[in-house]
Design a protein around this nucleic acid. Sequence first.
DNA 1: TAAATCATCCGGCACTTGACGAATCCCTAA
DNA 2: TTAGGGATTCGTCAAGTGCCGGATGATTTA
Lengths: 224, 224
Amino acid sequence: MDIHEKIAGEITIADNPGETIRKWREEFQVSQLELARYLSISPSVISDYESGRRKSPGVLSIKKIVTALVDIDQKRGGQVIRRYSSGMPSDALIDISDYNHDISLERVIRMINGTNYCNVGLNRYIRGYTIVDGIKAILSFSYSEYSKLYGWSSQRIIFFTEVKMGRSPMIAIRVHPLKPAAVVYIQPDRIDELAIKLAEIENIPLIVTDLDAFSISRIMASLK
Amino acid sequence: MDIHEKIAGEITIADNPGETIRKWREEFQVSQLELARYLSISPSVISDYESGRRKSPGVLSIKKIVTALVDIDQKRGGQVIRRYSSGMPSDALIDISDYNHDISLERVIRMINGTNYCNVGLNRYIRGYTIVDGIKAILSFSYSEYSKLYGWSSQRIIFFTEVKMGRSPMIAIRVHPLKPAAVVYIQPDRIDELAIKLAEIENIPLIVTDLDAFSISRIMASLK
DNA sequence: TAAATCATCCGGCACTTGACGAATCCCTAA
DNA sequence: TTAGGGATTCGTCAAGTGCCGGATGATTTA
């Protein structure tokens, strides 16, 4: 969801649009003066809006104001915006690629020397893979960025590194609308019961491997 | 996120608000005539809006139209709405309610005898609360059901019971698009570093209380 | 103490919205 | 083929937006 639309929606539906404009202006820490200057209009106009002198401002006015607030924030470094949609750092994403044909999951498991930990059938096919640093991902991805883990097909296998108990990655998957065809933990410390339970609920094989991320990246790429 | 705000936001920010109004009216399968009758205005008015004769309709007009569309849908059984906000509660959901006024977070924290665990400002307001069993929720909720946690306002405080390290609930929040105004752990075993870090990234106060879920339910209800 | 900054209030004016109703057109079901 | 639902276009006009500039006041900063 775009931040502009979110703010505009709140203003439009509010019982008192003016007060809501003010709320957001203050949230962005922009003075009436600064906002007015940015829009090349008189500060009194802003005050009139916020005080409610205009009961039903037009959508163009709202759009201008919202856009200006977001723009100003961005020029300052995007302090406020980032809370709603953070930038995409990609050192969390180690490798991602798609195949243009199906690959048997069982074959992949054999190649990476994996062990299945839960009671879910392995007779399925994948069309892509993602290798991701579990901790960095959870720390740096915003909601929408999780979708990027899925590339072109959600019919894929996701590898997680830096796994402690193995709960976090499965919870992320549980809560997210897109589900992978299989999950692999790369050299985890241990496997928690809840992780296995979640995998079974989602009907996703939970696999563990002793190989390192780099080797796996090479193996998976070789399957193209 | 309220569906009214979502639609209104889209209309307000769109390059062509009229077309966007039309898109939603058609999405709701309401004819111009029906909409006009519901609002006791002439159908030509709707057409004028949609055709773009009015380039910057006022927020009141938008609000009326959006509200009418949602109302009409609801009277028909809420076919369309349900696609955006669906889900069944279960025994995981202990209590949920909304206020029709802002309540200071600091006041709530005082009343539940809470301690803030992370470096995030407490100067904010809430409009509702949710008390949920952390383990049961993660085991029984499907993706869309997580939205149910947010009731009518995402500007709310969420209480989790059955917390071990406190990582899982924060991860669920991190991965989900809707974010609460504050999170409270009810009698957690302990608080993991990662949980605090995540709370700080999301700019969500992470609070701990020693009271039990039942007492909290009573206290929060008393604030109405 | 003077000078900015920040915000409010208000009279005024050009222009637009918000709404009407009548005319017109395209379908489709009786 | 005729009626009616659905949609569009347009002339019209009261009411309201959008914006100005100037006056006023409260705080902060020089």
